[in-house]
Design a protein around this nucleic acid. Sequence first.
DNA 1: CGCGAGCTTGACGTTGTTCAACTAGAGTGG
DNA 2: CCACTCTAGTTGAACAACGTCAAGCTCGCG
Lengths: 222, 222
Amino acid sequence: MLQYLENVSLFKFLTDEEKARLAENCTIIKYKKGETICKQGSFANHIVFLTDGLGKNYIEGSNDKNLIIEIVRPFELFGLTSLFKENVFHLSLASITETNVCFIGKKIFADITEGNNIISKNIIEYFCVKAEHYFKKIAGLGNKQLHGRFADAILYLSKEIAQSKVLELSITRKELGELAGISTESAIRLLSELNHDGIIKLEGKKITLIKDNLLEKLSEIG
Amino acid sequence: MLQYLENVSLFKFLTDEEKARLAENCTIIKYKKGETICKQGSFANHIVFLTDGLGKNYIEGSNDKNLIIEIVRPFELFGLTSLFKENVFHLSLASITETNVCFIGKKIFADITEGNNIISKNIIEYFCVKAEHYFKKIAGLGNKQLHGRFADAILYLSKEIAQSKVLELSITRKELGELAGISTESAIRLLSELNHDGIIKLEGKKITLIKDNLLEKLSEIG
DNA sequence: CGCGAGCTTGACGTTGTTCAACTAGAGTGG
DNA sequence: CCACTCTAGTTGAACAACGTCAAGCTCGCG
């Protein structure tokens, strides 16, 4: 358990003692793929991170159209925006692959981090980085159309998540659509179009970026 | 100047001495309506707040289509997301009416606030509240269509900005569109449609909400 | 009085969603 | 081991939603 906590960047600044206390108050639960881990609107008693696998956090729309905000990798904290002020989850978190999830009680987290300047500073920086991501998301949804949005989604997966030009993330076409803010069918059409034009290479669920510069261009022109 | 600082909720937690130091290092500049105060992408040396009037912060799209994120009222800080990590403005800030703007040097702000637990905690809460607003924005742009988005914009102006059912904010139709994420023409059409249906009452730039419950309903169904 | 910015309206075209039908592959039970 | 089912993926066609364009209007201000 301690090893897991060590991997969370925010917890690097805690003393061994604090980490030990935290470790005593964590629970790890296993999830199958596609399960909801935290439900938007529900009471937020915990903050959470994955120890392996992959997740997604998303906004649930009224007409069962979801919008994926971020793909969540292991050791990234989820639920910080619910820690203070409002105590409900603003987003849902679900597993994309089979995954183990570590739950940290809200109270113990607050006890340990509150009043710790370095932690506070890091939380603030975390929010700044996230805010920038949200702005990009808003700009994409507001100003760009299909091709631009889709290119953004692919580039995001490549740069931020896979950190490789080869995407083997076992993400469905539906999820790709929800990440780009377009319909599943549009996502499929764009995939085969880009594949046909040699900009990406499709092999089942595996996507390889071939001409990233063209994708960047698509992203720019919207 | 001290009076102005007193009105910024974050600064209420500073000692008189700290406030005095801050006051010495502020500049107030007057802007006419429609002027850009902070430019997206430019180097962020300051954080900023209005002492009167009204502003807007927005994302500048490539095709000169802007997206207004928030209407900014006096004594609300702008530029906090640029304080840490990246030091460029992620958004532009412009005046809607004639306004006076107080510039606070980034360094002096950091000197005074860093290491102050109460301030840190409040900044974090500030970000949590903002994050929720961004999520709403994303959900609106991603899931709702014209009517829902527009209702959101009107309700936002009524509840959060004017805090009244009567909107006399000297906001143009273009800005209304940019706030809702729709075209100017659509904004105009919706205004007259809602006016015709007796849901709002239009008198030039003055908008009065008549049947807010219907607006809420429009917002819900998207 | 005239000019220009903002506002308004209608017609038109594009974009992207929706619907429906079909295919492929993975798991399940007899 | 084979049929069945269920989910994910794919494709085409029709339709609705909005943006764009163009033209005319209004009002405030010099």
